[in-house]
Computed example of a mutant assay.
Amino acid sequence: MAVDDLSVRLKVYEGRAAVLGGRGKDPVNSPMIRHWCEAMGDTNPAYTGPDAVAPPTMLQVWTMGGLSGHETRAPAYDELLALLDGAGYTSVVATDCEQVYLRALRPGDEIMFDSVIESVSARKTTKLGTGYFVTTRMDVRVGDELAGTHRFRILKYAPAHASGEGERRRREHAQPDEQPRSPQQPHPRERPRRPRPVVNRDNAGFWEGVARHRLLIQRCADCSTLRLPWLPGCNACGSPEWDTVEACGDGTVYSYVVMHHPPFPAFDPPYAVGLIELAEGVRFVSNVIGVPYDKVRIGMPVRLAFVRCDEESELPVFRAEGEVVEA
């Protein structure tokens, strides 16, 4: 299928419904709000008590269909993804979301929502590979009143290491005695790079600290509440003023998962991703190294380390204390 022909076929899906007349499987409720706040470490008193409201960032939570999905799911979105799969754009990554809050949600509110395929981009070439950005917009309502909108964007792409163009370039630079390799088997020296972190005005200082091997935690200038990851304002008192403190580097594994699937260029599953509780009391998500993935345990002491992924990227990770880092 020619690229131009595919682009025309994809554009037909813009404006078509992905979910029509969706209904939240549960009303807004206090237990879910409590779970969310505990997981996020958010102690704002607005989310507790008889006059509690739900954290605005939970907007999408009340629309999730779980394993069984939604009966009102329209076929257009699945058709669009199948069309991209058939054209070779079989990998997918969520890139970003945007939310607009118009009304506070309170326990007992019954949620209704519609979702539409808002846009399909022209073909784009990224560091991950070549593909198409697909944006859906969900309008969340309580009765007839619009409570907020949630835009969600994914990239459906063909991985760069599997593209014919990448293989052609590799062959052009191959040594005379080097044997050609299939597009699915990149040369060891061509290991794909890890995705770059998104650096913006709200977190640039954090990444500047990482470059100097410092893990910086934001501290509210008004109420002294610590926060990590970085945010533009305090989630306890709302103040936009802040400074930073440097983490001492000690922590424990608060929780963890072992990633087995999906396989992704530049990553070698299985590997452990931990939610680390730092000595300062905030939590941070990163890899746990220095111990086999199946030996990671809740409560395990860890120590901050910095790992260079490539010539441009260095990341903070946590090494199990008393263990030798495996090569």
Results as ranks from 00 to 15, higher is better:
Ala2Arg: 12
Leu10Phe: 03
Arg16Met: 15
Gly22His: 03
Val28Thr: 05
Val28Met: 09
His35Ser: 09
Ala39Cys: 13
Val53Thr: 11
Ala54Asp: 03
Ala54Tyr: 08
Pro55Arg: 01
Thr57Cys: 12
Trp62Asn: 01
Ser68Arg: 13
Val92Asp: 03
Val93Gln: 09
Thr95Trp: 01
Cys97Val: 03
Arg103Met: 13
Gly131Met: 01
Arg141Trp: 14
Val142Phe: 00
Gly143Gln: 12
Leu146Asp: 06
His150Leu: 13
Ile154Tyr: 05
Leu155Ala: 02
Ala162Arg: 13
Glu178Ser: 04
Arg189Gln: 15
Arg193Asp: 13
Arg201Thr: 01
Ala204Arg: 14
Ala211Val: 06
Arg212Lys: 11
Arg212Trp: 13
Ile217Glu: 10
Leu226Met: 07
Ala236Met: 12
Asp243Tyr: 11
Val245Phe: 03
Tyr256Asn: 04
Tyr256Ala: 02
Met259Ala: 05
His260Cys: 08
Pro263Trp: 01
Phe264Asp: 03
Phe264Gly: 01
Phe264Arg: 07
Pro265Cys: 15
Pro269Leu: 03
Pro270Leu: 02
Tyr271Ser: 07
Val282His: 09
Phe284Asp: 06
Val285Arg: 14
Pro292Asp: 14
Ala305Arg: 15
Val307Ala: 02
Glu311Trp: 09
Glu312Ile: 12
Leu315Glu: 10
Phe318Asn: 01
Glu326Lys: 11
